[in-house]
């Protein structure tokens, strides 16, 4: 009975402490993320020719949207601001909804801020979910024409009808690949197959925090060119956009990131508390 009460008290403690900065709308600047900065610089200096585009793979579902969604939101915003055409795609069927809502919400937000328009078919195309994982990706990398692999967008319109794909070729048309996932196998399929003998696109990866340690080995080997590390990475990227592009800072993600920081402090406190209790009990038993 005592154990159950203790457990429930800890649950309550964690929920309340996390809710605190959210209820107060309190935020402090995020910690610097070196790997995120390098991805930002890559996109910021990227130039595309006619027929070239960014390939954005949203391979996440509701389970990891807390981290992957703000990451992809910031990257798509950056690409939109740079007027780099975006092609969205997923190997994970639960991402279907995000593929549609994400670019639409970013386009609306930017329209409110700048008054400019971002149009479907010209600025972005949603290919939707496609089954096949590794088989599909190796096929994609080899194809002469990108649109031949997919044929239609998520609404069933022929890809050849879109302005974005006029003059596009195969993998060479992908200037940058940004892939967001918490699924290591899906990420691996891009590392393994999304390249040609003489061409490898810039590869930016947005990982969930749990896969950060693994993602670093690919960053070190140069197989990925930049990394957004969980929510903290997304917050840093958003901070860079605040500084360099946005008229009004996007406080929302910084508040979330601050609450995340508070939750870390709570965990550290619980670890210390657990150890103190253990030492006290041990000493009492010895006595």
């Amino acid at each position: 009975m005592k154990e159950v009460t203790e457990r429930r008290l800890i649950y309550l403690f964690v929920i309340l402490i996390v809710a605190f900065p959210i209820l107060l709308d309190y935020s402090i600047p995020p910690a610097r993320m070196k790997a995120g900065q390098s991805l930002y610089d890559k996109i910021d200096t990227l130039k595309v020719n006619d027929g070239e585009f960014a390939f954005v793979a949203l391979d996440f579902g509701p389970g990891t949207q807390a981290e992957n969604l703000p990451q992809s939101d910031s990257i798509v915003e950056h690409l939109f601001r740079k007027r780099i055409p975006v092609v969205l795609f997923s190997q994970y069927f639960l991402a279907e909804g995000f593929l549609k809502s994400l670019p639409e919400s970013v386009a609306k937000r930017l329209n409110r801020e700048t008054g400019e328009n971002w149009e479907y078919g010209k600025d972005w195309v949603n290919i939707g979910y496609r089954p096949g994982s590794g088989i599909l990706i190796q096929n994609l990398a080899k194809a002469d024409k990108f649109i031949e692999v997919f044929k239609e967008d998520a609404n069933g319109s022929s890809l050849s009808e879109f302005k974005l794909f006029k003059n596009s070729k195969g993998l060479e048309s992908v200037k940058i690949l940004t892939e967001f996932t918490g699924l290591v196998g899906v990420f691996d399929s891009y590392i393994q197959f999304f390249q040609k003998k003489n061409y490898v696109p810039i590869f930016g990866h947005g990982c969930t925090s749990i896969t950060i340690p693994e993602a670093y080995i690919y960053l070190d080997s140069g197989q990925i060119d930049g990394l957004l590390e969980g929510l903290a990475g997304a917050a840093w990227y958003s901070h860079l956009l605040d500084k360099n592009y946005r008229k009004n800072n996007m406080e929302d993600i910084q508040i979330t990131n601050t609450a995340l920081g508070v939750s870390h402090l709570a965990i550290i406190f619980l670890i210390i508390l657990g150890n103190i209790i253990m030492f006290v009990r041990r000493r009492r038993n010895n006595a």
Partner: peptide, 23 residues
């Protein structure tokens, strides 16, 4: 989306209890 996010977010609370009891 809400159900999936809520299911997985329970892990956040469980890691707190793990930090207190097991680390």
């Amino acid at each position: 989306v809400s159900l999936g996010a809520a299911m997985f977010s329970l892990l956040g609370i469980y890691i707190a209890i793990a930090a207190y009891r097991a680390f």
